[in-house]
Design a protein around this nucleic acid. Structure first.
Lengths: 344, 344
DNA sequence: TTGAAAGCGATACCAT
DNA sequence: ATGGTATCGCTTTCAA
C-alpha cells in the first residue's frame, strides 16, 4: 500500500489544472499549449504515472487483451505458437489470456465464454478435436469480436486463418517415402473432421495418386483424442500390424502421435526403419536424438503464432470493417533423418 | 454489437428496483427479502447477466488475475508448470498473464513492471538466470502484492516458495551413478547463483562426500544461459573431454542441458553409456525414446504449478497478513534407463 | 428491507 | 486553450 500510483486527479491538484487538461496533455492533444503539456508530462514522468487500465477499459470498453484457445499448453507445437504470440503481444502492448481445451468441446465452449466475459478485444482459436459446432464462436464473432484461426481452422467462420502447409507437408513426406522405395504407407492421424486431418490426408492421397498407388483404407487410422492418449496410438499400430499385409512405412500426423508411435514401436520391438519407416509431423525439440533419428515435417510454430497475432491485432485496430480475409499458409520443412531411410 | 450484455441498471429498470437492491440481491445479501432475491436472480439468469469485470476491478482495485514470470514457455518443464497453474486458476476463477524473460534480467524487470501495471492480484515468479538484484520484486511485494516463487527461488524475499527436491534428486542421481561403478562424475549446470544450481550441486557434493570422493572442480561446468544455447553445452562437453582424465558420467542439471548434451555426444560420436553415462534433470515428454533411453530426474512440474498457484491464491485471499511462509519441496523421481547402466 | 448517492479513474462533450 | 461535468458499471455508506 505504500507506493500506490498516482492518478490524473493527483496531477491536476498538484499543478492546479483541471482533470480534462491533464488528460489531454498526457495524450499530447493539439489543443493544449506547449508549456502546460510539458509541465504535465514532466510531472507524470517524475511521479511515474501509469494510467489505470481498468478505468480506461471501463470507459472505452476495450481491454487491450487477447484470448487464446488451444488444446494443450505443454504440447511442443502449441508452446512454440504461444511463444510467438506472446512476443508480438508484448511489442504491441497487448495482454494474452491462454486457455486449454484438453480436446474437450465442452471445455472449449466454457473457455471462450470466459474469455468473452473478460472482454478480450479479440480471439485466437485453434479448435479442439471434438469441435464441429461453432455457434459459440459465431455468436461472439457476429457481435463484433475479431477472431483469427490458427492450425485447426474452420470455414464456418469468415475470417483470417493461419496454417502450416499441411497438404504440401504430407505430400512431401509421402513422396519421400515412395522415393525411398516404401510401398505400403500408412497414416495415423487425428479425428476425421479436423482441418489438419483432412489437409494431411489430402497431400497423402495426391502423392499416392501421382504414383498410381491405390489408397488402402486399412492403412488410415484415426485417433479420437488427437493422439493425446498413448493407448489410442498403440491400438492403431496393433491394428496396422495385424493386417495380412502390414505397412512398411507410417506417417504420424502430429507431435503426440509421433512420440507415441516411437514408444509403441520400441515396445513392440519393431525396428525403425528396418521393419517400418516413420515420418512425423512434429515440433519435438530434438528429433535427432530419438532412438532412430526421426524424419519430421517441421511446422513453423513460432511464426504461426506471430502471424496469427499480427493479423488479429490488425483486425482489432482496423478503422473500417474488414471484408477480405486471408488464409496464410506457412511452408513446412521436411527434415530427413534415419527413420525414413531405406536400408539396402 | 448485437448481443451486448445487460447491466445492473437494466435489471433494476426492468424490475422497478434500485441499483443497490439488485446489486445486493445478486450477491445474495442477507438484507434482501427472499422473493426479491429470487426475482432478481431469475431475471439475471434468464438474461444471462455477467457482472462487468472492469467495473468491479475499478471499484475493488482487485483484478482476479495473476501474473506469471518465467524464462520460456516452450520449455517442457515450464510448459507443464503453466498447465498446472492454469488448471487451478480456472477452478478458482482467476485469470493468468504469462510473461517470458528469455533469461534476461532486463526483460524480467520490464515484464514484472507490466504485470504490476495490469494490477495483478499476485505474482508467480521463477527467476531468470541473470537475476541477482530483486529490488523490482521487493518494491511490489512491500506495497502489498503477494508473491510466490517456484523452481528458481530467492531468500531475499520472505514468502512462500515451491521447489523440486533438487538436492535429493542430485544426490540420488549421483549415488546411482556411483553404485553403477562410475567414478568420475561431471555436472553440467546453469549459472552459479541460481537456486536450482546450488541445490543440485549440493546433493552432488553430499553423495560424493558420502563415498569419500573428492570434488574435482574441472568436472563442474556452468552454462551462462542456463543451457538455452546449444553452443554453451557443446563447449562444456568439449572442455570435459579435453581433460587428461575425462569424466565417465555426466549429470545434466536441466531439461535443455540434457537434450543438448545428448545431441552433442551423438555428434561427437561419444557413446552413451559405453564412453560416458548420462543422467538428466528433465521433463522431456518421452525420455525413453531417446537414442539411448535417458535416465532422468523427473520433476513434478504440473504439481509445482498447482501448488504454487494454490499458495498464491491463499495469500491473496487471506483475511489477515500471513507471517509464516512455507518452502514446499516436492519429491523428484529417479527414472533409471539405459543411459546410466554400466556395461560389463 | 430498500433506496439515494458518492466514488473508483479516465475521457469526451459542452462550455467558456 | 482550459475547465466543468456526465458517464462507463458496480459497490457501499448512509438514510429512511
Amino acid at each position: 500500500m505504500t507506493s500506490k500510483s498516482i492518478t490524473i486527479k493527483d496531477i491536476a491538484k498538484a499543478l492546479d489544472l483541471s482533470y480534462s487538461t491533464v488528460s489531454r496533455a498526457l495524450k499530447d492533444s493539439y489543443r493544449i499549449s506547449a508549456p502546460v503539456k510539458k509541465k504535465v508530462q514532466d510531472y507524470a514522468a517524475l511521479h511515474n504515472y501509469r494510467p489505470n487500465l481498468m478505468a480506461q477499459s471501463l470507459r472505452s470498453n476495450k481491454s487491450r487483451s487477447i484470448g487464446i484457445s488451444l488444446c494443450s499448453i505443454p504440447n511442443n507445437f502449441f508452446a512454440e505458437v504461444i511463444s510467438g504470440m506472446e512476443s508480438v503481444a508484448y511489442d504491441k502492448d497487448y495482454k494474452i489470456f491462454i486457455t486449454q481445451s484438453f480436446e474437450s468441446f465442452e471445455r472449449e465452449v466454457k473457455n471462450i465464454e470466459h474469455l468473452a466475459w473478460y472482454a478480450v478485444d479479440g480471439l485466437l482459436v485453434s479448435l479442439s478435436t471434438e469441435t464441429t459446432d461453432l455457434s459459440h464462436l459465431k455468436k461472439l464473432h457476429e457481435s463484433g469480436t475479431p477472431v483469427v484461426f490458427f492450425d485447426r481452422i474452420s470455414d464456418q467462420l469468415q475470417t483470417h486463418a493461419v496454417i502450416a502447409a499441411n497438404k504440401q507437408g504430407a505430400y512431401d513426406a509421402t513422396m519421400h517415402l515412395l522415393q525411398q522405395g516404401f510401398q505400403r504407407i500408412a497414416q495415423i492421424t487425428s479425428t476425421p473432421d479436423l482441418s489438419i486431418t483432412k489437409e494431411r490426408l489430402e497431400g497423402y492421397y495426391e502423392a499416392l495418386a501421382a504414383n498410381r498407388i491405390a489408397v488402402n483404407k486399412d492403412y488410415i487410422k484415426y485417433c479420437m483424442h488427437g493422439g493425446m492418449i498413448y493407448e489410442e496410438v498403440e491400438q492403431a499400430i496393433s491394428e496396422l500390424f495385424s493386417l495380412a499385409e502390414p505397412p512398411d512405412a507410417i506417417i504420424a500426423a502430429s507431435d503426440r502421435i509421433s512420440i507415441h508411435s516411437v514408444s509403441v514401436l520400441n515396445k513392440k520391438g519393431i525396428l525403425i526403419p528396418q521393419q517400418v519407416a516413420l515420418v512425423g509431423f512434429s515440433n519435438f525439440s530434438a528429433p535427432e536424438i530419438i532412438s532412430t533419428a526421426l524424419t519430421t515435417v517441421k511446422q513453423p510454430a513460432f511464426e504461426m503464432g506471430k502471424k496469427a497475432m499480427e493479423l488479429l491485432i490488425q483486425l482489432i485496430e482496423a478503422k473500417r470493417p474488414v471484408k477480405n480475409f486471408e488464409k496464410i499458409i506457412l511452408p513446412t520443412e521436411l527434415q530427413v533423418r534415419a527413420s525414413s531411410i531405406k536400408n539396402k
